[in-house]
């Protein structure tokens, strides 16, 4: 929408800045060494998601995006950290280093490759895209999604894996709010409902793992596998 580009230049720059910060937090989720820092980074990422939704909602005059922002604030910035701290407080405050399959510098290099990959995929889509698309949010949202998947694979502990899954959801919606500004509220509601249940179910499951197996380093769970 070229007219908007001129009239709301500042807001568009703000939206691009938020997108950049969102990507930075996605890297942060891979680079953090402690569980609590991981959660804080996730909250920060959700904040940027909400901010982006507010800005895009204002630009597109879309009430549903403003609602998306509000729901994100309530669910991802307030409820989820509260739920996690309530069920897994001790796990979160453990001051040990998260064990990983690959070390962090290697991880960051791979993460960089993932971002480049999502950029190239998105560029091909954006070239033929229906109007109304944000050139920033699609590649960065996709990168957030794939980086979350990557973080989930390399982290060997339960709570960072949960946070990685939640951040994948953030990535999907970060792209979603831009490419579908009139996203039906039902979509966002089911997304929010979903992350809440994920947090609850997995939180309880982690407690069970802790209780019965004695560790939450889920990378060590190798009883069941092919010989």
């Amino acid at each position: 929408m070229p007219d908007m580009w001129t009239s709301n230049l500042l807001l568009h720059e703000l939206s691009a800045l938020v997108a950049g910060l969102f990507l930075l937090t996605a890297f942060g989720l891979i680079a953090t060494r402690q569980v609590l820092a991981c959660l804080r980074t996730f909250v920060l990422q959700s904040l940027f998601l909400a901010l982006s939704a507010f800005v895009l909602g204002y630009l597109n005059a879309s009430a549903s995006l403003l609602a998306v922002g509000a729901i994100t604030v309530v669910v991802k910035i307030v409820l989820i950290p509260w739920l996690l701290l309530k069920t897994l407080g001790d796990e979160l405050r453990a001051r040990r280093e998260i064990s990983q399959v690959l070390n962090i510098p290697t991880s960051l290099l791979i993460a960089l490759a993932i971002v480049v990959f999502s950029y190239f995929v998105s560029v091909r889509i954006l070239a033929v895209a229906p109007k109304g698309a944000s050139a920033m949010n699609l590649p960065i949202g996709m990168a957030g999604l794939l980086l979350g998947a990557y973080a989930m694979t390399v982290r060997r502990e339960a709570v960072p894996q949960i946070i990685a899954i939640l951040s994948m959801e953030n990535g999907a919606f970060f792209a979603g709010i831009a490419i579908a500004p009139h996203l039906p509220l039902i979509a966002e509601l089911s997304g929010a409902f979903d992350v809440l249940i994920i947090t609850r179910v997995m939180g309880v499951l982690v407690m069970k793992v802790h209780e019965r197996v004695g560790t939450t380093a889920v990378g060590d769970l190798v009883t069941l596998r092919e010989e």
Partner: peptide
């Protein structure tokens, strides 16, 4: 423990 590992 096996069932919980599988569930996770």
């Amino acid at each position: 423990p096996e069932a919980i590992e599988a569930a996770w």
